[in-house]
């Protein structure tokens, strides 16, 4: 079990051939109060970098990108009724979607926790 990160502030939990994706604590803090989340349906195929989900704060709408290529196996239905889970538990109950890992080589593009933390420090 490994967690990797993207420059778009997504986390990718890798478990065998599958991954769970959400947005980071840094991202939820920057977005502020989340009022709407749209997650993809199971069966949807994405290439790395495609728009996969939408997250809206009181201020604005943002896209969540597919950090890797693959097929969606589950979207987090709980976020429809309780989008604020992304604020309270961004790296737990506030996960966005689960997907297959279509191309393991793409995981090499992602940062580990140390690199991501350094990346965030560079932004402040």
């Amino acid at each position: 079990m490994t967690v990797k990160y993207t420059e778009d502030h997504e986390w990718v939990l890798i478990e065998g051939d599958n991954a769970t994706i959400g947005i980071t604590e840094y991202a939820q803090n920057a977005l502020g109060d989340i009022v709407f989340v749209e997650v993809p349906e199971a069966g949807t195929e994405f290439s790395q970098g495609d728009d996969a989900a939408v997250v809206e704060s009181v201020k604005a709408a943002s896209e969540v990108y597919a950090p890797i290529s693959g097929e969606i196996t589950e979207g987090n239905a709980a976020l429809e009724d309780e989008p604020a889970l992304v604020n309270t538990s961004p790296e737990g109950d506030g996960w966005f979607f689960k997907m297959t890992i279509g191309d393991a080589a793409e995981l090499e593009d992602l940062m580990d926790e140390k690199a991501y933390n350094e990346f965030c420090e560079g932004l402040d």
Binding site: G32, D33, V35, S57, V58, K59
Partner: peptide, 12 residues
């Protein structure tokens, strides 16, 4: 200031 630490929702 667009918001303070309280956040837009709670400020509103």
């Amino acid at each position: 200031p667009v918001q303070y630490p309280l956040g837009i929702l709670k400020e509103h």
